Amino acid sequence: MELFKMAKEAMNMRSKMKDIDNRLRNQVLDVEYKGIKIKINAKNEFLSLNVPEYLLKEKKEKIEKLILSAFEEACKKAQSVMTEEAKKLTGGMKIPGL
């Protein structure tokens, strides 16, 4: 009977993970960093990038640095949301990889 209970719990956990995966994919975050706008979902999938015209007149190196910083900021925000969702699933228990 124990094996049956473990299998049922595993299936329940799989269902919860799939639900969280869908919620993360559908949760779109708007991040703005020094005029650069990025849309990213909470699964770290980038959806759009908008660089304002005035920035395109800057030196290439400056634009590249600003875009990288904007992507880093967007990733941090998405990771934060992902971490909060994982806490809900695990009840705050630390699980490597989540």
Rank of each mutant, 00 (worst) to 15 (best):
D21G: 09
D21C: 09
N22W: 06
N22G: 09
R23T: 07
L24P: 06
R25H: 11
R25Y: 10
N26L: 05
N26I: 01
Q27E: 15
Q27C: 10
V28E: 05
V28R: 03
L29D: 06
D30I: 12
V31W: 03
E32I: 03
Y33M: 01
Y33T: 01
K34A: 15
G35L: 02
G35I: 02
I36W: 01
I36L: 07
I36A: 02
I36C: 05
K37Q: 15
K37R: 12
K37A: 14
I38G: 02
I38R: 00
I38D: 00
K39Y: 02
K39D: 04
K39G: 03
I40G: 01
N41D: 04
A42F: 00
A42T: 03
K43M: 05
K43N: 11
N44G: 06
N44R: 12
N44H: 11
N44F: 00
E45Q: 02
E45A: 05
E45T: 05
E45S: 05
F46I: 09
F46T: 05
F46L: 09
F46C: 11
S48F: 06
S48Q: 03
L49T: 09
L49I: 11
P52W: 07
P52F: 09
E53Y: 12
Y54T: 15
Y54L: 11
Y54R: 11
L55P: 06
L55C: 04
L56C: 12
L56Y: 08
L56A: 13
E58G: 04
K59Q: 14
E61L: 13
E61P: 07
E61H: 11
K62A: 12
I63M: 01
I63Q: 05
E64I: 12
K65D: 13
K65L: 10
K65Y: 11
K65N: 09
L66M: 12
L66H: 02
L66A: 01
I67D: 04
L68F: 14
L68C: 13
L68K: 14
S69T: 06
S69L: 09
S69H: 09
F71P: 02
E72C: 12
E73Q: 12
E73D: 09
E73F: 01
A74M: 04
K77Y: 05
K77S: 08
A78D: 01
Q79A: 14
Q79T: 14
Q79R: 09
S80N: 10
S80W: 08
V81R: 04
V81E: 03
V81I: 13
M82D: 08
T83M: 13
T83Q: 12
E84D: 14
E84R: 10
E85Y: 11
E85D: 06
E85W: 01
